[in-house]
Amino acid sequence: MKSHAYEVTAVDVGRLVLEVLAPCFGIALLLHAAVFLQLLPDPWPALDLERTVITHQAEASRTDHGANVVFVGDSSCLMDLSGTVLEQAAGDDLEYLNLGTFSYLGFGGFTTILARCVEQNRESLQMVVVLVHPQMLRNSDPAAEYLVFLSDYYAVADHMGAPSFYSRLESMLGLHIVRGRLLGRLPQVLPGAYGREYGFNLNLDRHMTRNLGSATDPNRYVAGSGQGTAEYRLAASLEPLCQGMKAVLPEGIKLAVALAPIPESMAPPEYTLRRDALLGRWADWMHADLVLTNLPAVMPDSLFATNTHLNEEGARRFTELMGRWLGELLRGEPATGPEKRAR
């Protein structure tokens, strides 16, 4: 017995498929034309947690905030500084701005962001503080995709993602335009604890704007969860990358370096001494004017959200120390807070 008969020809099938595909290419053409004619809004691809933070910070860096002190660094910089405390510490005469990013952009990425910020805030800027977690100095590779993302954002270009068959198909169909210019502007749910704390990308973006670029890590630290993996050393390969940062600063703007604190349970013996040595050597590579040696190297576990981020209370305490010292320094008052080492 025959299995089945086809009462359809190849031409019919071809017409069926073409009926669906042809308009897709028409829509793609329209999208590309709309970009060319500048009919669509600029890209704002805040599509997830990492990209929301980068987009926010990149946008902040190219805006004139009249900032006197700018913080640049990794996710510890983003999370360990409390926006509320900075605002209180600012008083009438000092403005702070935090440009820390969630995904690791490396010193190359930090320099790109800083260069934009310096361009916009040249008149007001007095000091740049580079704040990173000590583990970062081991020189893990920066996330290449996010570096491209950042440069695309600055170039007002549509980001296509890592090259693959899929990204090429997306780009041909103009879907990267939809994603970056339209979808990113609509609410996107943030994952896990960040979702519960902030909800959507738009809420995080607004939170960061209100908090001078800072965010709060909503996780809860489980003591000892990172023990055995902590390793604090300075990778030699970082030296050339570090030097770029000073180069983008005009004369008169001071460069300060600091390391974020680590949880008590993760600190090896005599960690403070080791941290100071590490910091000193890194400061030399950075050609830093100031080294913040007496900020706490270790803080109680209860003040941490994760191995590398302080929680809200921890960030408040750490920022109070940081803000007091910076305020006194910039106003030319004698230091009463943590010691500083002027170079």
Partner: peptide, 19 residues
Amino acid sequence: VRCGVQSLLLLSLVLFWQK
């Protein structure tokens, strides 16, 4: 209408297709 709806469905599928 038929072609437009089907194409928009297909495009949105490609847009939201997860690896």
